[in-house]
Amino acid sequence: MQKFLFGLAITALLLGLLWPWIDKIPFGRLPGDIVVERENFRFYLPLTSMLLVSALITLILWLIRR
């Protein structure tokens, strides 16, 4: 458990340090993301983005445990 928390802390630190560059990656609205815009309302469901992030995390965890 300690290794996991340490790895999570290091990952958060690296993401925080690299955020100015990560923020510029055009990863925003992908095809398949649901956007509903009304007069005083905006709903955004990043369905495709969530699936890609989930697949990436699953692949990384699978490689680590192997």
Rank of each mutant, 00 (worst) to 15 (best):
L56T: 12
T58E: 04
K24H: 08
V35N: 10
L63K: 01
L59G: 05
L30G: 06
I10Q: 11
T11E: 08
L61N: 03
T48F: 05
D23H: 09
E39H: 05
R42V: 13
L45F: 09
L47A: 15
I64M: 11
P20K: 00
L14M: 14
P26M: 03
F6P: 08
K3M: 15
F4T: 10
Y44S: 04
I22N: 03
A9Y: 02
F41R: 07
R29Q: 13
G32K: 03
A12C: 15
K3E: 14
T58R: 06
I60T: 08
M50P: 00
W62G: 04
P31Q: 01
A9N: 06
M50T: 06
N40W: 02
R42K: 15
E37K: 11
I34W: 05
P46M: 03
I57L: 13
E39P: 00
P46W: 00
Y44F: 11
I60C: 07
P46Y: 00
L8Y: 11
L52E: 00
G32F: 02
P31K: 02
R66P: 00
I64A: 12
L61K: 03
L45D: 07
T58H: 06
I22D: 02
I57V: 14
S54T: 11
M1F: 14
I57P: 01
L63A: 01
P46L: 03
R42N: 10
S54G: 11
A12H: 10
L17H: 06
L18G: 06
V36T: 08
F27K: 11
T11K: 11
L52W: 01
E37T: 09
M1H: 14
N40T: 10
R42H: 10
R66I: 05
S54Q: 06
F41N: 07
L51Y: 07
F43D: 06
P46K: 01
L61A: 05
L47W: 10
Y44M: 04
I25M: 13
F6M: 14
L30N: 06
R42I: 12
L61S: 05
L52C: 05
E37G: 03
L18T: 08
I57W: 02
I60Q: 06
L17Q: 11
L14E: 05
L17P: 08
F4S: 09
G32T: 02
I34G: 04
G16I: 02
F6E: 12
R65Q: 05
F43A: 13
L18R: 05
D33Y: 01
L59C: 09
L52A: 01
L63S: 00
D33S: 04
L8T: 13
Y44K: 00
I34V: 13
L51A: 11
F4Y: 08
I10H: 09
I10P: 10
I25S: 09
S49K: 03
G28R: 06
V53I: 15
L30A: 12
L56P: 00
N40A: 09
M1D: 13
L13W: 06
I64V: 15
W19K: 09
K24Q: 13
L59T: 12
F27S: 14
F6L: 15
R42A: 09
T48M: 14
D33V: 00
F43I: 07
F43N: 05
R29Y: 06
Y44P: 01
A55I: 12
R38A: 13
F41I: 01
Q2E: 15
Q2F: 15
E37V: 09
K24I: 08
G16N: 12
